[in-house]
Design a binder for these strands. Structure first.
Lengths: 226, 226
DNA sequence: GTCGTTATTCTTGTATGCAATCCGCTAAGG
DNA sequence: CCTTAGCGGATTGCATACAAGAATAACGAC
């Protein structure tokens, strides 16, 4: 999405997916030479990817020891959702008062795009529109730092968001919630809109519960040695 | 403090200081070859430092363009404070209900240490105790992800926090505020404690206003070479 | 004279080689 | 038999060399 031509970013995405998909287990050591050979890149961009992943908390970087997978536990994932929910709720609260007319129109349009994509079963377009919607809310908060934090937390959660579309029942409800907090925002009910957004985010976490439970089967056994 | 033997970390600290001290101006390009030569390291650890600094938000990394200093403007610094205040307020709200007896004692002790250090004029010990106090509150929130975010935002602000002790009048007030929200926390008044903490953080930002104004003046002269 | 194009040069991105450090194994001593 | 010191293998950290992309400047066409 950002820059596929860079090996570092490509590798970063791959590792991200592998951690999210459960291919790597928590605490696994990521050997530089082995991974470099397997992914057909040199160690330099790989190390760069490790840095990025460490910044979003997906790997732990111990000096002169190496990179270790830090796949979030169930409780940790829920905690991430709580933080995300609070950040987005705050964005909504601010955006309710501060958003411009253009931004309001943009939000409605994005919500429409979501709906249409869902009807047509276009998963990619749904995600794209959904990201636009949330991203515009961050922006409309008027606090750029807050917007960046929200965006960052969103990115941290994204790898675990893949299967979301599989649960089709959840999506229809999600659409209604979009309409809900957008309505509240347009009516100027900041607190209510914030609450709706918080609930919207947290309800997503239930989806992830199932996802993590699936993962849990491969992750819970703890040989303690390897 | 973490690992001085690594060139990358050393370089990272140096650049961090330079940005905070105003040696670099916002938007300045950090040339890899020039800096590498000046700091007497190769480009590899330097690039690593750039990654770390980008993660904290002190530099912006544009693919195939380079690293650019992102020294916060006055409005941006205030925004960072707003986010910090909200994060800490949330920490306090949670910690009020969740903190253990041991944590409560620890907080009181840290507050005492602050007070003593202030009386004795020991700036370092004050900062250390103050960091312990706030850090323990993050921890007591019971949400590890939230705690890490707060810690991270704190670190982002730290380079700009150097001269805080110079404003002595502010410090005494700061001490009273410590007592204020600790009291509220112990009485179980979560919302009130949160409000007090938010006010505590935001009142710090006024100190920074002066700091930034000072920076603005010194930042203007541009030796360009050294 | 201005705009578009292309070539040159500078910078970033990647690969590889070398040095320092850590881990595990072996062997010697208690 | 257990503990510990020393050694060898393997891995990370750093430096340098090479490749690819971007900015710039020069050139030519209109």
């Amino acid at each position: 999405m950002t820059d596929n031509s860079r090996a570092a970013t490509r590798v970063c995405t791959i590792i991200e997916q592998r951690i999210a998909s459960g291919a790597y287990r928590d605490g696994d050591k990521l050997s530089e030479v082995a991974l470099a050979e397997q992914l057909e890149v040199s160690r330099t961009p790989l190390r760069e990817a490790f840095q990025t992943l460490a910044a979003i908390g997906l790997v732990e970087l111990i000096p002169r020891r190496g990179a270790f997978v830090k796949r979030p536990s169930m409780t940790r994932l829920v905690e991430m959702f709580e933080v995300m929910a609070e950040l987005e709720a705050w964005c909504v609260r601010l955006a309710t008062r501060r958003m411009t007319a253009a931004q309001r129109l943009y939000l409605r349009q994005a919500a429409l795009d979501c709906e249409r994509a869902l009807k047509e079963g276009a998963a990619d377009r749904y995600h794209e529109a959904n990201n636009r919607l949330h991203g515009k809310i961050y922006e409309a908060s008027g606090n750029q730092v807050l917007a960046e934090e929200a965006q960052r937390m969103d990115r941290r959660l994204r790898p675990f968001r893949r299967r979301q579309l599989d649960v089709s029942g959840r999506l229809a409800a999600s659409m209604r919630e979009h309409g809900g907090f957008l309505d509240a925002m347009e009516r100027g009910e900041a607190d209510k809109a914030a609450d709706l957004m918080r609930a919207h985010i947290m309800s997503l976490s239930t989806t992830y519960d199932r996802y993590l439970a699936m993962l849990g089967e491969t992750a819970d056994d703890h040989p303690a040695d390897s």
